[in-house]
Amino acid sequence: MGNLTWLYAKAALTGFTRRGSTLPSYSRELRVEVDREHLAAYNRVCGFGVRDELPATYPHVLAFPSQIELMTAPGFPFPLPGTVHVANRITQLRPLLASEPLDLTVHLENLRPHERGRQFDVVSAVSVDGEQVWVDVSTYLRIGGGSGSADKAQEEPPKPTGVWRVGGDIGRRYAEVSGDRNPIHLHPLTARAFGFPRAIAHGMWSKARCVAAFEGRLPDAFTVDVRFKAPILLPGKVDFSAKPTADGWRFALWSRKPHLEGVISG
């Protein structure tokens, strides 16, 4: 993950000149062996228990450097600054173990219009012994040039089942385990340079923290799909809600507005 600092600097220096209407077709492939100390650190930051089974969100941080490589490589049409992570869907087909070598692939696909601009997917997949066992689809939005025609319905907050206090250092702590050192997450001063009043929590930290709340209650195979809404300002306090459905759970994070809404199905 050490090259991510350079990739963020590269994005800041060269990204604003990017223009284009297609996604490059190249991909990244690598074999990853889980570092148990890193896994334990990730589990502590996100609220999981320490065990040999990987949290469903953990392979995302293994794929993240390759995701950033693709979005800063020649031919990628958008600047990385200002490209917003709006959704993430993870499908786990069976539990993954820390002892298993993981074959990881990452590619870009499905550039499409959005009412606020254009969006696309970064698809990461893990295989073990040739069998695909995990798929992650991160949807990003490039704001600008959209129709702006979406209607915004007034949302009512769900009844909370818990209240979480989110420390002011969670952005820095998650950055250490994820490699995602975007300045908006690290310090109030750097966040203000990008238009935020304070540092904000990582979306994938908030998703992982929600999944950790269901630990011990999920099947071996399931999909967890979230939409990222308003950012969580740090430090902060959020209401967590969880409601069972016919095939899983519906959950959300709220304060005065929705921060994250998701479903688990299995």
Rank of each mutant, 00 (worst) to 15 (best):
Tyr8Glu: 04
Ala9Pro: 09
Lys10Ser: 09
Lys10Val: 11
Leu13Arg: 12
Phe16Tyr: 07
Tyr26Met: 14
Arg28Trp: 03
Val34Asn: 01
Val34Gln: 00
Arg36Ile: 11
Glu37Val: 15
Ala40Lys: 07
Ala41Glu: 13
Tyr42Asp: 10
Phe48Trp: 09
Arg51Trp: 09
Glu53Ser: 00
Leu54Tyr: 10
Pro55Ser: 06
Thr57Met: 09
Leu62Gln: 15
Gln67Leu: 10
Ala73Ser: 05
Ala73Leu: 06
Gly75Gln: 00
Phe76Tyr: 02
Gly82Phe: 13
Thr83Trp: 04
Val86Phe: 00
Ala87Leu: 10
Ala87Phe: 09
Ala87Ser: 12
Ile90Gly: 04
Ile90Gln: 11
Gln92Cys: 08
Gln92Ile: 11
Arg94His: 01
Leu102Trp: 10
Leu102Arg: 11
Asp103Asn: 02
Leu104Pro: 04
Val106Gly: 07
Leu108His: 08
Asn110Phe: 01
Pro113Tyr: 01
Pro113Ile: 04
Pro113Ala: 04
Arg116Leu: 06
Val122Phe: 02
Val123Thr: 02
Ser124Tyr: 04
Ala125Leu: 05
Ser127Arg: 13
Val128Thr: 09
Gly130Arg: 03
Gln132Leu: 15
Trp134Ala: 14
Val135Glu: 15
Ser138Leu: 07
Thr139Lys: 02
Arg142Pro: 05
Gly148Thr: 13
Gly148His: 14
Asp151Phe: 11
Lys152Phe: 07
Ala153His: 14
Gln154Ala: 11
Glu155Gln: 13
Pro158Phe: 06
Thr161Tyr: 08
Gly162Gln: 13
Gly162Met: 11
Arg165Asn: 14
Arg165Met: 15
Val166Arg: 03
Ile170Pro: 07
Arg172Pro: 02
Arg172Ala: 07
Gly179Asn: 11
Leu186Phe: 04
Thr190Glu: 09
Ala191Lys: 00
Phe196Asp: 05
Ala201Pro: 04
Trp205Val: 12
Ala208Ser: 13
Ala208Glu: 00
Val211Ile: 15
Ala213Pro: 03
Ala213Asn: 08
Phe214Pro: 01
Arg217Pro: 13
Pro219Met: 10
Asp220Thr: 14
Thr223Ile: 01
Phe228Met: 01
Gly236His: 01
Phe240Gly: 07
Ala242Gly: 05
Pro244Ile: 09
Pro244Thr: 11
Asp247Glu: 12
Trp249Ile: 07
Arg250Trp: 07
Arg250Phe: 13
Ala252Pro: 08
Trp254Ile: 10
Ser255Tyr: 08
His259Trp: 05
His259Lys: 10
Gly262Leu: 08
Val263Tyr: 03
Ser265Asp: 08
Gly266Gln: 08
